[in-house]
């Protein structure tokens, strides 16, 4: 039997009980090429006995079982995460069921169907927000700041939509002004994003967000003053703001391309 085949047999003996994940298959191929490198170096050193070359090459690997144990541990970790995710899903479904029951009971008793729907929609949003917050814990732990930015942006959006819907139902007389809450939402996006970027060492991204924030503050100031009648409203303000926004967009694209590179 050739030396290569003996190495393959050795690897089969050790790997066949390990789950064939991509990581395990990569590792197996990596170990095989290392065994061949070791064998070649022993041949180059003048060793001709294939049994000796085989034994020495295997010995150079060290305690391969130790590495394989860490695969098993990783597999257990995956199982734990799957169990946790199942539990969270079950709890979410149960809570949604209770909210639906509460919504139906309240609606039937009060007959205020035009208002109670917000319980169902708001409840669903709050469940999603809670799940996203739970999902953020490993992102913080493993410092996945780009994903964290996306999660916080989604949470902020859902939170403001929930508050908006509540205001629409509870204070309908102010509906002409309620939409202004979305200005606050956009400001919150960027403020949260800047904090995450600077905390996570994504200083360039933080600076880009800061530039957007300054631009937005200018826009909101203009809109606010125009709504209060302090300055005269004119749609042409859009032109310089659009130019500035385009500049910032170009900066963001350059940063993204550089980051990808």
């Amino acid at each position: 039997m050739s030396l290569e085949q003996r190495f393959k047999n050795y690897l089969y003996e050790h790997f066949h009980f390990i789950k064939a994940t991509q990581y395990a298959l990569d590792y197996k191929e990596e170990v095989y090429s290392t065994l061949l490198d070791h064998a070649q170096s022993y041949k180059d050193a003048g060793e001709t006995d294939e049994d000796v070359i085989y034994e020495k090459s295997i010995s150079s690997l060290g305690d391969i079982k130790l590495t394989l144990t860490s695969f098993e541990k990783n597999s257990d970790d995956v199982k734990r995460v799957a169990i946790k995710a199942s539990k969270i899903t079950l709890i979410s479904v149960a809570v949604m069921f209770l909210i639906t029951v509460a919504y139906l009971v309240t609606s039937l008793v009060t007959k205020a169907w035009s208002k109670t729907w917000v319980m169902e929609v708001g409840g669903a949003f709050l469940i999603v927000i809670t799940n996203l917050i739970i999902g953020m814990i490993p992102l913080v732990k493993y410092k996945k700041y780009m994903l964290l930015r996306f999660s916080v942006g989604t949470i902020t959006t859902l939170l403001y939509i929930t508050v908006y819907l509540l205001l629409v139902v509870l204070v309908p007389e102010y509906i002409s002004r309620t939409w202004l809450i979305f200005f606050l939402m956009i400001l919150s996006w960027f403020i949260a994003d800047i904090i995450i970027c600077y905390t996570g060492g994504l200083k360039v991204w933080g600076f880009v967000s800061l530039l957007f924030l300054v631009l937005l503050l200018g826009v909101f100031l203009y809109v606010g003053l125009a709504l209060l009648g302090v300055i005269t409203w004119s749609i042409y303000w859009v032109l310089p703001v659009a130019a500035a926004a385009l500049d910032l967009l170009l900066i963001a694209i350059v940063v993204a391309l550089k980051h990808k590179k």
């Binding site: 990596e30 090429s33 290392t34 070791h38 150079s60 690997l61």
Partner: peptide, 22 residues
Amino acid sequence: YGYEISHMISEVSGGEIDIKDA
């Protein structure tokens, strides 16, 4: 690659340190 590194350690240490691939 892995073998290159274990070989480098062995070579730099004059064969005094034999670090296993695992």
